[in-house]
């Protein structure tokens, strides 16, 4: 042990140093900043003015920020339902003993490795294009002229279009997590159930779902973590800086602190920090609720 002490310190120092510089120190500083009014982001601490919870109440009273939180909630909730159901469905199919399993799995995961900017451009400029778009072509050929005429990127449809495109890119990752969870369940359970006369649907309901609790938890947590950072897609789908249909808290923060937006009346970095704190609290809350609603230690398998 004593001989190893030097080695432990030597081996750990670079990683722990990076972690402290990039995560630990900034997180602590952001929490502190959220309670201060800070005119310039480079201002020394001496020029910060303590304002208590003023940043948070200010955010709560800013309608654009409220809209951005509402959008985030919609993305998280509706997107979550769409992504989780599709991911679970695909995972069940993939693990049901079909042929070409690896190929199917690889193609479904493919969108996840593509740059979000490239993927969003494909959707925006091709699928939703009002001139040569995929949706337009398909609906015209099917004779559904009403559907073909829909302007997918106008204000009424923009949010739904954004959400759909985003979900398409996210399904693969969550499918893999579900699939690996299902594969860990011993096939004995399913065989025993089949012998007892349970059909596939009942097997899914009474064996797969209860045993996947932990996996659900992982998936919901990961989904929340990625949702909170929702940024690129909004930026690509919005035509103006403060687009109420697509704005999310990250976009709002960027606009306030770094943006070239002209709607800014005052710069206050404390406000940006407060947004960060708020979003982190959301993630922790989701994590906590998941852990309490789904205790998976009562099942051993």
């Amino acid at each position: 042990m004593k001989r190893n002490k030097g080695m432990i310190i030597l081996f750990l120092t670079p990683a722990v140093f990076m972690f402290s510089v990039i995560f630990l120190y900034p997180i602590i500083r952001t929490v502190i900043m959220s309670f201060f009014k800070i005119d310039g982001i480079t201002d020394p601490v001496a020029r910060w003015q303590f304002t208590g919870l003023a940043n948070f109440t200010k955010l709560a009273n800013t309608s654009l920020f409220r809209i951005s939180m509402w959008n985030l909630l919609r993305i998280w909730f509706f997107g979550g339902i769409i992504v989780m159901s599709l991911a679970l469905l695909f995972a069940v199919i993939i693990t049901s003993g079909i042929r070409f399993k690896s190929f199917f799995r690889a193609v479904i995961y493919l969108p996840n490795i593509v740059s979000a900017v490239a993927l969003a451009t494909m959707w925006l400029q091709y699928v939703y294009s009002p001139k040569f778009g995929l949706l337009k072509t398909v609906f015209t050929n099917l004779g559904l002229t009403d559907l073909a005429k829909i302007q997918w990127l106008d204000n009424d449809h923009k949010f739904a279009s954004l959400l759909l495109a985003y979900c398409f890119g996210m399904v693969g990752y969550h499918m893999l997590i579900f699939a690996s969870g299902i594969e860990r369940i011993s096939s004995d359970y399913f065989e025993a159930a089949t012998l007892d006369g349970a059909n596939k649907l009942n097997q899914f309901r009474y064996i797969t779902v209860p045993l996947l609790k932990g996996v659900f938890k992982t998936n919901i947590t990961m989904w929340s973590v990625t949702s909170v950072g929702f940024f690129v897609w909004s930026q690509l789908f919005s035509t103006v800086t403060a687009d109420t249909q697509t704005i999310t808290p990250m976009v709002y923060m960027y606009m306030q602190i770094f943006g070239a937006g002209n709607s800014i009346t005052e710069r206050n970095s404390g406000l940006g920090a407060a947004i960060g704190v708020l979003l982190s609290v959301c993630v922790v809350a989701v994590f906590w609720i998941c852990n309490h609603l789904m205790k998976d230690d009562d099942l051993e398998f």
């Binding site: 972690f19 500083r29 952001t30 973590v225 990250m250 602190i257 920090a273 960060g276 979003l279």
Partner: peptide, 27 residues
């Protein structure tokens, strides 16, 4: 402790770290 710290860091949103980093770097 280090392990817990690293695992938690994977769930930290970028907004939480970007402002102080930018402040330091810019100054």
């Amino acid at each position: 402790l280090i392990q817990t710290g690293f695992v938690s860091a994977m769930g930290v949103p970028v907004v939480m770290i970007v402002l102080p980093l930018f402040g330091i770097v810019a100054s």
